[in-house]
Nucleic acid binder design. Structure first.
Lengths: 127, 127
DNA sequence: CGGGATCCGTTTCGATACTG
DNA sequence: CAGTATCGAAACGGATCCCG
């Protein structure tokens, strides 16, 4: 478990469990990474990078390490030249998918709702 | 809608809707605020502050304004002396509660799972 | 009572360059 | 190929002081 997650998990007694979820899933690209690993079962670093919108290696590496530290993804290193590293979901990671779906679903509805309130919407509006 | 949310809502085309949810719900105290407003229907600033663990007024104010800007809470100002300000959930805010519950539930399970892996756990361990 | 103004330390994201 | 090292910019949470 990475330090940030550990701090929140341990210091919390009351009803703020939601913030634990956000600490674990709330990084840039993390929901997308988890969804891609559901679709593809196992992905190499470069494959993940291409399927996402080419985040910098620095950023992608950090997100993957955090997910690994928090126990959601499993990282397998093949010691060979050129190097090969595979990522897949752990049991805990698979268990997070329903929540990721819920986040995606509500976020999509929210975005649609908000776009419908914009002045010059490009969507066909009945009027 | 606050600027951060607007940026994310507009610039996103693909499957990253989950990050919209996190942008809206991911601030400090926000899930707790929403839960408290479900329990109490309507709360004044000072009541909210006491029910939470006394965050600084600066911080609580910002979270409430962001929730208001994003359309989840409704702020009502009574122009009187001393001032009185009430907060309640909007329709959109009530619609977020199932997601808040899902975050709370998964976060609680995650925390419990992780605590069970700690070396010197204080919980009674069968062994 | 319910904030606003100001300042600060930390975290986070991201770009660029380099490497086993 | 899969990163690491270094740097900069911005966002965030929080403390302190002040106000109508």
């Amino acid at each position: 478990m990475r330090e940030k997650t550990a701090r929140i998990v341990q210091e919390w007694t009351d009803a703020c469990d939601a913030e634990i979820s956000i600490a674990v899933l709330g990084g840039a690209w993390k929901p997308s990474i988890l969804s891609l690993l559901r679709e593809h079962e196992v992905l190499r670093f470069g494959e993940l990078s291409r399927l996402l919108d080419e985040p910098t290696a620095r950023v992608l590496t950090r997100q993957l390490r955090e997910l690994e530290d928090d126990g959601l993804v499993i990282r397998t290193v093949y010691r060979q030249v050129p190097p090969k590293v595979e990522y897949r979901l752990s049991e805990l990671g698979r268990g997070s998918l329903p929540l990721v779906d819920a986040l995606t679903s509500w976020g999509g509805s929210y975005a649609e709702h908000q776009r419908s309130l914009l002045p010059e919407a490009s969507a066909p509006v009945a009027r």
